[in-house]
Design a protein around this nucleic acid. Structure first.
Lengths: 337, 337
DNA sequence: CTGAAAGCGCTTACAG
DNA sequence: CTGAAAGCGCTTACAG
C-alpha cells in the first residue's frame, strides 16, 4: 500500500513505523513539547530507517516561516553594481549567506534594480537586511507596509529599526583627517544627492574640519544615478573654478573614479597635485591608478552582525536597536601618498 | 465575521465577493483553465478591491514549485572567494538574480563552503545553476540524488546535463596565443589539480601549442584549495628549475597572483623578464601590479543564458543540451605587454 | 506524556 | 464554463 521507495516519507510514515501519532513525531523532532526519551528514540530510529526529510514547503505553509532572509539595497545600479556588477551589495550578500546558514536559514538575493515593487514581487522572506537606506526609502516603505522585519546596515531613517552602526562619522573623519595630514589649500567634498545618513555624516564632519582649519567649504551633491560620469563632469567644473584645489574626498567610489577620470583629462597629477580618497574599498578603488585611499569597512563582519540581529528580531529575543559594527580601518594608497 | 482589514484576503474571500467558487478564482488568475470573460473580470475586480495577494507558501505546498532557483559552486573559497569575498560566483549571482526576476523566480545564494550537505541543508529550490563542476563533483552528486534539475555553467562531467558553453578551448587558445606572440623560450602552465574541464582544456591547448612551436612542456598542477600560496611556492620552484622561463599561463586567478608574488620575490620583472596571463578578469587580475592580462568571460550574459535554460528545463520545453555562450574577449594588460 | 482532529490556502481531478 | 470536494504535510491547540 505504501511504497517508501518511490514516495517520499512523511510524518505519517514515521509515526506508523514508530508506533506513535504524527503529532508526537513532530514534537519529538522539533522539541516543541517534551517527549518521552524512549519514544523519541523510536521516532529517531524510524526517521533514520525511512530517510525522512521534513517537507519544508508544508512546514512553511503551516507555520508561516520560510527560514529565508533577503538582502537588498536601494542604491541605483550605477553605484551599487559598477564594473563587473560587484561591490558593496555582493560583498554583504556572500557573507550573509554563510551567516544565514549558521542559523539554518537561506539567503535570497534581491536583484539590484531600482523598483522595489518589481524586485520584491516574488520574494518570500521572514526578514530583510537593507543596505544603507535613504531618508525616504522605497524599499523600506514597501517592507514596512508588508510587515517584514528589517535590520538596517548603516543607519536607519527611523528610530524604531534595529541597525548595525558602520560608524559613518569615524569613517569620514578618518579619511578627511588623512587627507588633511598633508598641507591642504582647497578640498571639495563630493557626496550623493540622496538623503542618506552616510552623506549627511560625511558632510557634517567635513564642515567641522573645514571650519577648524579655516579652509573653504565646497560641498558638491551628485545624484547617485549619475554615477561616475556625473562626478566626472562635476569635477571638471571644480577644476575650472577652484585653482587652489589640491585634494578631494569623494564619499562614493563611483564618484571617486569619475574624479580621477576628470583629473587625468585635465592633466592634474594624483597625488602630486591633487590627493583623492573615497570610502568603500571595492573594485573601483583598487583598480584605479594610482589606487584609491579608502577604508576597510569589514563588510563580512557587518553582514554577520546584521544576520545575527535579524534572527534575534525574528525570534523576539531582546536586543539593542543599535549594534556596534567594527571600526573602519584606513587603507592608504597611492592616490593620497 | 470576516474582517478583511485585519486578515489577509484568501481565494475564498475573493470567490465570495465575485460570486464564484474558489476553484474558478484560481483558474481565472492562473489561466490553467478557460474562464468566461465576464466571470474573469468580476474576479479581477474582487482581487483589486480586496488587495488579494496569493499566499506563495500555500501555492508552493500545493504545487511543489517554489519559484526559487539556486546558484552554487564547488570551488573552494580560497579560489572562488578570494580577497573581498567576491569573484566569479558573485558576478554570476548578481546577474542571475536579475534574470530570475524576469521569470518571476527568486535567486537563492548557496553559501560558498566546501561541504554540499551543509550548504544545501535548508535550501529549497526548483532548480540549480552549478558553476564549473569537477569530474566527480560533490554538489552535483547531491543535486542528482535529490532529483534537482541542474544547468551547468562551463562544461558538465556527464553528457546528460544542459550546459552553457563558455568556450574553454578558445579561451585558453586566446591567452596562450597572446603570450606566444612575443618571442618565448619557456612557458609553464599552472592549472588546478582537480578534474575540471577548464583545466583539462587549458592543458590540451597548451600541449598542442607547445608541440607546434617546439617549446618544452611544463604542466604544474596545484590543488585549488592551496590557492595563492600554493602557486607562489610552485612558482619559486619553477624559477629555480627553469632558467629560460619567460612566460606563465596560470589558468586560475588566485594562482596568477601567487605567481606574481613569487616573481616579485625573485626579482623578476613583469612583463620585461616574464609575461603572465590568467583566465578570469576579476578583482585579483585588475588589482595586481602590473594588472594581469585576462579574458572577459561575459559572466552576466552567461548567467542569463543559464537561468533561461533552467527555466526551459523546469517547464519541460525542448532545448539543446549545449547552449552556446558568448565568446571570450582578450583583455590585454601590463602583465603581458 | 500522548493521540485525534482540525486546518493553514491553494490547485486539480471529477462531475456536471 | 463552473462548482464541490479532496488533499498536499505539517503543527498545534484541545482532551485526556
Amino acid at each position: 500500500m505504501n511504497d517508501f521507495r518511490t514516495r517520499r516519507a512523511t510524518v505519517k510514515d514515521v509515526a506508523r513505523l514508530a508506533g506513535v501519532s504524527p503529532g508526537t513525531v513532530s514534537n519529538a523532532l522539533s522539541g516543541a513539547r517534551a517527549v518521552d526519551r524512549e519514544t523519541r528514540q523510536r521516532v529517531e530510529a524510524a526517521v533514520a530507517e525511512l530517510g525522512y526529510v521534513p517537507n519544508l514547503a508544508a512546514r512553511h505553509f503551516r507555520t508561516g516561516l520560510s527560514n529565508t532572509l533577503a538582502v537588498m539595497t536601494s542604491m541605483p545600479p550605477a553605484v551599487s553594481a559598477g564594473s563587473s556588477k560587484l561591490g558593496f551589495l555582493m560583498e554583504v550578500a556572500a557573507s550573509a549567506a554563510i551567516s544565514a546558514l549558521e542559523h539554518n536559514a537561506t539567503l535570497v538575493l534581491v536583484p539590484p534594480i531600482a523598483d522595489p515593487e518589481t524586485a520584491l514581487r516574488n520574494v518570500v522572506m521572514d526578514g530583510a537586511i537593507l543596505i544603507e537606506p535613504a531618508q525616504s526609502d522605497p524599499f523600506l516603505d514597501l517592507l514596512t507596509r508588508r510587515g517584514v522585519p528589517v535590520v538596517v546596515i548603516g543607519q536607519p531613517p527611523r528610530d524604531d529599526l534595529p541597525w548595525i552602526d558602520m560608524h559613518y562619522r569615524q569613517t569620514a573623519d578618518l579619511l578627511i583627517g588623512h587627507l588633511l595630514q598633508q598641507p591642504t589649500r582647497c578640498m571639495p567634498l563630493l557626496i550623493g544627492a540622496s538623503a542618506r545618513a552616510s552623506h549627511a555624516e560625511a558632510e557634517a564632519v567635513y564642515l567641522e574640519r573645514m571650519a577648524a582649519t579655516g579652509l573653504p567649504c565646497h560641498v558638491i551633491r551628485i545624484p547617485e544615478a549619475a554615477g561616475e560620469e556625473g562626478a566626472r563632469q562635476a569635477m571638471h567644473a571644480l577644476i575650472r573654478e577652484l585653482p587652489d584645489l589640491d585634494a578631494v574626498f569623494a564619499s562614493v567610489d563611483a564618484f571617486a573614479t569619475g574624479v580621477m577620470c576628470a583629473l587625468r583629462e585635465a592633466g592634474r597629477a594624483v597625488p602630486q597635485q591633487v590627493r583623492v580618497a573615497t570610502r568603500y574599498d571595492g573594485l573601483r578603488a583598487r583598480e584605479e591608478r594610482p589606487a584609491l585611499t579608502a577604508t576597510n569597512l569589514h563588510l563580512d563582519a557587518v553582514a554577520g552582525l546584521a544576520i545575527d540581529r535579524l534572527m534575534d528580531l525574528l525570534a523576539g529575543r531582546p536586543a539593542p536597536l543599535r549594534v556596534e559594527g567594527p571600526l573602519p580601518v584606513l587603507v592608504p594608497r597611492g592616490s593620497s601618498a
